[in-house]
């Protein structure tokens, strides 16, 4: 069979186009569809009883979740599970580990990414405390971004870019790990503040929350500079638990000089995670962390949207606390 010139040209273009399209779909488009959470999620219809939790000087239950800001089906599935978790074991606090809004400005999307998915919990009176996230790696620090952060803080009623709160037996220290927040020119001011705040903390438990993980085996990996700048401060003051997001997966490290580092960034999107020598548990799943502190025992459960248990760990309070 002989081809005419037109047929040959068209056939070559077709074969080339097929190869190119196959490459683009397999390398770019389909991974993007599976990595993002673009389909709008249905609003959860649960009604929760208001302020059903019990917080005493010796007892606290809280939830930790990060990277929730899509408003998509997966984000809503995690939020719905958190609401069901509240029904079973109520908590009065969500520590949000950053990236509360993707795909636009928080001012425009606050309803979609926060009030709609988390409506039942907000209605029940649950507090949300935010550790500033970076949104995404390609977003560089700018006046527009600073304005975005300040809007987030205002909408959530967060007092400052880095701050400390106390709930029951736990002191929480929230850091702004964006650049230059913790790893740029402003680092010394924030680290000095953290050093002072940790040294004056008298609570039995010290939990540090930030967006960028000091240690991670996920796609972004350990945050450059964190091990040199931040970790010595955390170790000096015997912090118990560090909660982070940024990588869209779950990972818990083995205790590193007494500190357990957890990445709880599966609030909406998914990226793969490996296991390294410091990993105690890891999974690329949508999830949140349900934490219960009773006396000298802290028990955390990592829970998937279908209610499945991904990981469970218990920490004992440091001696002398």
């Amino acid at each position: 069979m002989s081809l005419t010139r037109r047929q040959f040209l068209a056939a070559a273009a077709g074969v080339g186009g097929a190869a190119l399209t196959g490459g683009v779909l397999a390398d770019q488009v389909w991974p993007l569809l599976s990595r993002e959470d673009l389909v709008p999620g249905r609003t959860p219809e649960l009604v929760l009883s208001r302020q059903a939790w019990t917080t005493t000087p010796d007892r606290l239950t809280f939830a930790a979740v990060g990277d929730t800001g899509t408003g998509g089906r997966q984000a809503v599935a995690v939020a719905a599970r958190m609401a069901q978790g509240y029904e079973q074991n109520p908590y009065g606090l969500i520590t949000h580990l950053g990236d509360i809004c993707y795909y636009g400005r928080i001012e425009d999307r606050f309803d979609d990414v926060f009030l709609r998915p988390y409506g039942p919990l907000v209605e029940a009176g649950v507090d949300v405390e935010l550790a500033i996230g970076n949104h995404d790696g390609e977003v560089h620090f700018s006046d527009a971004r600073l304005e975005e952060i300040e809007t987030e803080l205002r909408l959530l009623g967060t007092p400052a870019r880095y701050y400390r709160t106390t709930h029951g037996p736990v002191d929480f220290f929230y850091l702004d790990s964006s650049t230059p927040g913790l790893f740029g020119d402003d680092a010394s001011a924030q680290l000095d503040w953290l050093d002072d705040a940790l040294s004056t903390s008298a609570s039995r438990w010290k939990v540090v929350c930030l967006h960028h993980p000091p240690y991670s085996s996920g796609r972004h990996g350990a945050t450059p500079g964190a091990e040199e700048m931040l970790v010595p401060v955390l170790e000096r003051h015997a912090v118990d638990l560090v909660l982070a997001g940024h990588d869209h997966n779950y990972e818990r490290t083995l205790p590193l000089n007494g500190i357990t580092y957890v990445v709880s960034g599966g609030g909406a999107k998914l990226t793969p995670v490996n296991r390294t020598r410091i990993t105690a548990a890891a999974a690329s799943v949508l999830q949140y962390l349900h934490v219960e502190v009773v006396g000298d025992r802290l028990t955390a459960r990592c829970i998937r949207p279908d209610g499945g248990l991904v990981d469970r760990f218990t920490l004992r309070a440091r001696e002398g606390r």
């Binding site: 569809l33 599976s34 599935a77 998914l270 949508l286 998937r304 279908d306 499945g308």
Partner: peptide, 10 residues
């Protein structure tokens, strides 16, 4: 989308 959500625990 379906397999991602199911694999992620939905």
């Amino acid at each position: 989308l379906d397999s991602t959500a199911t694999g992620g625990g939905v």
